[in-house]
Design a protein around this nucleic acid. Structure first.
Lengths: 126, 126
DNA sequence: ATCTAGCTTTACGTTAACGTAAACGTTAGG
DNA sequence: CCTAACGTTTACGTTAACGTAAAGCTAGAT
């Protein structure tokens, strides 16, 4: 099924503005086709948008998300290019693993904060 | 032991510029004392800086990191304030848990990419 | 005394990621 | 036919998080 989405469809579904979608297109992150001027987004566009927004939630820049999306598709190229790609993939993973560490620490700290907060609210507790 | 750090000490240790440290102070995130004009950073400042940078790696804004740091220290206030704080703590945690989900997904995707990349490099593999 | 190294403040510049507004085309409904 | 609703392009505005440069203070070395 080759579903197509209007710009408003996508904007509403992902809670972004149409300006944002046009901006992403301007930056080369989305490539909707045109129905006589009007943009028409494919499932591939929709998936890319999901990945971009996921990246955003992780604090990645649009360029970083763009890079990662390219990694997903790249299985082509000569050996030289593939090995450079492999390096980039592994580098990104290292960064994400570092983030995972940071996340655990911050969650633990929040846990502490909550505990102290509860203790302050309810001092007479077993 | 009440160690003190110069602005250059801290900048080098955390690989940031002195401008960054002054900027964080301007924003109220650090509060170094003064030795006759010159800034002198305490262990508390150093810890706050660590937390700020951890937040940055997770994609938090300075304001968000600032909020979280305040959560760590706040055990005071009346019941009203404590309960609002508790809400904020739990909200932040929810956000971090979402991030954790996103992280897992992205790591899995990268894993896939790496596998396809290796397959393309070494087609004749069991 | 002078020079240098490192600190200071002040202030303007820069980049990413959109927001906002103006001006215009087009298509479905009354 | 007119307008209301959505789409388009163009272009200037905005915010966060610093970078960069100018101008000056000060303590130690030469």
């Amino acid at each position: 099924m080759t579903t197509a989405y209007s710009i408003r469809d996508l904007a509403q579904e992902f809670s972004v503005t149409t300006r944002t979608l046009r901006f992403y297109e301007e930056k080369g992150l989305l490539k909707p086709s045109r129905n006589k001027q009007t943009r028409s987004y494919s499932n591939a566009d929709r998936t890319r948008l999901r990945l971009i927004l996921r990246g955003k939630r992780l604090g990645l820049s649009l360029e970083e998300s763009s890079d990662i999306i390219l990694m997903y598709k790249s299985t082509s190229g000569n050996q030289q290019q593939l090995e450079r790609l492999l390096d980039k993939i592994r580098e990104k993973r290292q960064q994400l693993l570092q983030q995972q560490e940071d996340l655990k620490l911050m969650l633990a700290d929040l846990q502490d904060s909550e505990a102290r907060c509860l203790a302050a609210l309810n001092p007479t507790h077993p």
